[in-house]
Design a protein around this nucleic acid. Structure first.
Length: 415
RNA sequence: GUGGAUAUAGUUCAGUUGGCUAGAACGCUAGAUUGUGGCUCUAGAGGUCGUGGGUUCAAGUCCCACUAUUCACCCCA
């Protein structure tokens, strides 16, 4: 027996309706927010992620599915959605499209991690990236859209927001931060010792008690934002408030991907019902396109983990809309199945969802089966019906029986 | 990468201080008179007790190793 690889999951027929609903909600957002779908390959040149996601990140350092192909190229399965989209944007000169350009995708992502609740080696992200716009209004709108996505499932998670500042104020802040941390390096955890060199901002996010204590008195980014960054951030907060987005300012929020600048955000489960409480996250990355060899281009985007969303909904006891509905099961009480096939075909040709008996089961067993597969009605095709031209339909929910001619059937099931 | 837990039927689990042909519930299949589901009743199928080794007269139960699963940390969605 060969088992499923570690950290992967089958979407079984009994739960696939949840994924259909996710796709339906995404299509609805596409329609209402004027999004355009982009599909990029499942794998890219490894170099793209090293440069895009960042050398100092855990994703690049220990979580990538990398292999050498037969042409001796280093290839990596995409660990996240943004880098591939940015690459495609540059490669296909999409900056010649009317800007802003609002893209979206649903894609599997691969990270070699130790699996646990809400954490897989293959997970699926719904992501959206907005190119060519750098206003607080755009920041607000994309958060409104993500918030809309969650609300479509009947939840309203908090979105934590923080501002890392533009290149200039961030530089000043990082310098100040390093000066503050310098005398404390000896007291910090070994990871943070390294972070001091690679990415000091991430020390702020450390969960080790010693580091937390040091962080308590660390200078706050908010005190170092330039006037422009400050007024932008205040504008954003006002817009979010007006739009009724459930946000919270979190000055300690830092994200593990290197490409972010200015705004960063994270949708979280405040009840901590899920082991992993991040339901989605994103931010602005105004330097990424340029770093990947394109013209300077402001971008903002997010990624939402679908598996986590579905687990979260299940834990909260929230039902997902189902698209599984069978109008009628056509049972046979005659020897030959030919008329059963004919009637079923006629119903299907007219858009009725119909299933028919394919076995030699007794009529009673056919009713049992119809009940199990949740058919709304059973249509009995027997010698009596064929002779009289009048068919018996039983509604299983209401346990009511009706008699109709062949011509009346379609209208009955569709009405 | 670090730490903890678990492994018995399709599923969820019980199985006492080691002791006869390993159980339950749910699910599945069939039946309860003539062409009708759900509820109820009856019967049936289904297990090399994760794998390998050890202790013992005797191992699902004790010990060791391996494997798998799972939870948590780091980090992320």
């Amino acid at each position: 027996m060969i088992n499923i690889p570690k950290g992967t999951k089958d979407v079984l027929p009994s739960e696939s309706y949840k994924w259909h609903e996710v796709e339906r909600v995404v299509r609805d957002l596409k329609h209402r927010y004027n999004l355009h779908e982009i599909k990029t390959p499942m794998f890219e040149h490894t170099e793209l992620f090293i440069r895009g996601v960042g050398k100092s990140t855990d994703i690049v350092n220990k979580e990538m599915y990398t292999f050498v192909d037969k042409g001796n190229r280093s290839i990596t399965l995409k660990p996240e959605g943004t880098a591939g989209v940015a690459r495609s944007f540059i490669e296909n000169s999409l900056y010649n499209e009317p800007l802003p350009l609002k893209l979206y995708y649903i894609t599997p992502c691969f990270r070699y991690e130790r699996p646990q609740a809400g954490r897989l080696r293959q997970h699926t992200q719904f992501g959206s990236e907005w190119f060519g716009v750098d206003s607080p209004e755009a920041d607000a709108e994309i958060l409104m859209m993500a918030s809309d996505f969650y609300r479509s499932f009947g939840i309203n998670p908090t979105v934590l927001i923080n501002n890392l500042g533009c290149a200039e104020c961030r530089k000043k802040y990082v310098e100040t931060l390093k000066e503050y941390f310098k005398p404390h390096i000896g007291d910090m955890c070994p990871d943070c010792g390294k972070r001091f060199e690679t990415n000091p901002l991430r020390i702020l996010d450390c969960k080790v008690d010693e580091c937390k204590a040091i962080n308590k008195n660390a200078p706050k980014i908010t005190d170092y934002l330039c006037d422009d960054c400050n007024s932008r951030f205040n504008k954003l907060k006002k817009l979010l408030k007006n739009a009724n987005v459930n946000y919270k300012f979190e000055p300690m929020l830092v994200r593990g991907l290197d490409y972010y600048t200015n705004l960063i955000f994270e949708f979280i489960d405040e009840d901590k019902k899920l082991g992993q409480n991040a339901l989605g996250g994103g931010g602005r990355y105004n330097n990424l396109v340029e770093e990947l060899g394109g013209k300077p281009m402001p971008v903002i985007g997010f990624g939402i983990g679908i598996e986590r969303l579905l687990i979260y909904l299940e834990n909260k006891g929230i039902e997902v809309n189902s698209d599984e509905h069978l109008n009628v099961y056509v049972a046979n009480a005659c020897e030959d199945l030919t008329p059963v096939i004919e009637i079923t075909k006629m119903l299907r040709d007219n858009g009725v969802s119909a299933e028919m008996n394919l076995t030699d089961r007794s009529l009673k067993a056919q009713f049992k089966y119809a009940d199990k597969i949740k058919a709304e009605n059973v249509l009995v095709v027997g010698d009596d019906e064929l002779k009289s031209g009048k068919f018996t339909i039983k509604n299983l929910k209401e346990s009511k029986q009706t008699t109709l001619t062949k011509n009346e059937l379609v209208k009955y099931f569709k009405g």
